Amino acid sequence: DAEELIELVERALKEGREIILLGVRITSEEAGKWFIEWIRRFL
């Protein structure tokens, strides 16, 4: 579910982890915020 995915992304970014989803590397909080917004819009 989308909320679970958002929580995972937020937690990983807070822990300083690198996330790779759909071939996109997300390493900064700014990118994470963009990704979370995208999830909310399309899922």
Rank of each mutant, 00 (worst) to 15 (best):
I26H: 03
W38H: 02
I6W: 15
L43G: 01
R25I: 12
L22V: 06
A2G: 07
E7A: 13
A12F: 06
E10D: 07
E15F: 06
L13F: 07
A31Y: 09
E18P: 08
E4Q: 13
A2P: 08
D1H: 14
R17K: 10
E3Y: 13
W38G: 00
E4D: 10
E30C: 15
L22F: 06
R41V: 10
D1R: 15
V24P: 02
L5N: 00
F35T: 01
L43A: 05
L13D: 02
L43C: 15
E30P: 08
E15G: 04
S28C: 07
G23T: 09
I26E: 05
I36L: 07
K14T: 05
E4R: 15
S28W: 14
F35S: 00
D1K: 14
A12T: 05
K14W: 05
E10K: 14
D1P: 13
E29W: 12
A31G: 11
W34K: 12
W34D: 06
I6A: 05
E29F: 11
I36S: 02
F35Y: 05
R25K: 09
F35I: 13
A31T: 11
I6V: 07
R41Y: 13
G16V: 14
A2K: 08
D1I: 15
V9P: 01
R11P: 04
I39K: 00
I19P: 00
A2N: 06
I19H: 01
E37M: 05
F35R: 01
L43P: 00
I6T: 05
F35Q: 00
F42W: 14
L21N: 04
L8W: 10
E29I: 12
D1W: 15
I19G: 02
L43E: 02
L5K: 01
L5F: 10
R40S: 05
F42L: 11
L8I: 07
I6Q: 03
R40T: 11
E4T: 14
V24F: 08
E7S: 12
R40W: 12
I19D: 00
S28N: 11
K33E: 08
R41C: 14
S28T: 09
A31K: 07
V24L: 05
I26G: 01
L43F: 12
I39W: 02
W34E: 06
L22S: 04
K33W: 10
L8P: 00
L22P: 01
E29D: 10
E10Y: 07
K14A: 10
K33P: 02
I19M: 03
E7W: 08
G23A: 10
E37V: 07
K33I: 09
R41S: 11
E37W: 09
E7F: 09
L43M: 12
L22A: 06
E15P: 04
E4A: 12
R41F: 14
L43K: 02
A2M: 13
E7R: 15
E18L: 12
V9C: 11
E18G: 09
I19R: 00
G16N: 09
R40I: 13
K14D: 04
L21W: 07
L13P: 01
G32A: 13
V24A: 03
E37T: 03
S28D: 07
G32F: 15
I20S: 01
E29L: 13
R11I: 08
V24Q: 03
R40C: 13
G23S: 07
L21S: 06
L13S: 02
A12E: 06
E10P: 00
V9F: 04
W34A: 14
I36N: 02
L5T: 03
F42Y: 10
L13E: 02
R17I: 14
G32N: 05
L43Q: 03
E18F: 12
E3M: 09
W38F: 11
I26K: 03
I6P: 03
D1Y: 15
W38D: 00
L21Y: 06
E4V: 11
I39V: 08
R41P: 02
R40L: 13
T27R: 08
L13T: 04
L8Y: 07
G32P: 08
I26D: 02
G16S: 08
L8M: 10
K14P: 05
L22M: 08
T27D: 12
I39E: 01
E37S: 06
E3W: 15
E29R: 10
R41G: 09
V9Q: 00
R17Y: 13
R25V: 11
T27C: 15
A31P: 02
F35G: 00
S28P: 08
E30F: 12
F35P: 00
L22R: 05
K33H: 06
W38S: 01
E4F: 15
E37A: 11
I20L: 05
G32L: 15
V24R: 01
E4G: 13
G16L: 15
I26S: 03
I26R: 05
I20V: 10
A31M: 14
W38E: 01
G32D: 03
R25T: 09
L22K: 03
F42K: 02
F35L: 10
K14H: 07
I6G: 02
L5R: 00
E10W: 13
W38V: 03
G23N: 04
E7D: 12
F42I: 12
K33Y: 10
E4C: 15
E37N: 07
K33L: 09
L13V: 08
I26N: 02
G32V: 13
W38Q: 02
K14G: 07
R11L: 06
I20P: 00
R41T: 08
I36F: 07
V24I: 13
G16W: 14
S28I: 09
L22I: 10
I20Y: 02
I39A: 00
F42D: 00
R25M: 12
I39F: 05
E3T: 12
E10S: 09
A12G: 04
E15T: 07
W34C: 06
L8E: 05
L21E: 05
I36H: 05
E18S: 12
I39Q: 00
A2Q: 09
E29H: 10
G32K: 10
A31V: 15
L8R: 09
I6N: 03
V9Y: 00
F35N: 00
I39H: 00
E37P: 00
R11N: 06
I39M: 08
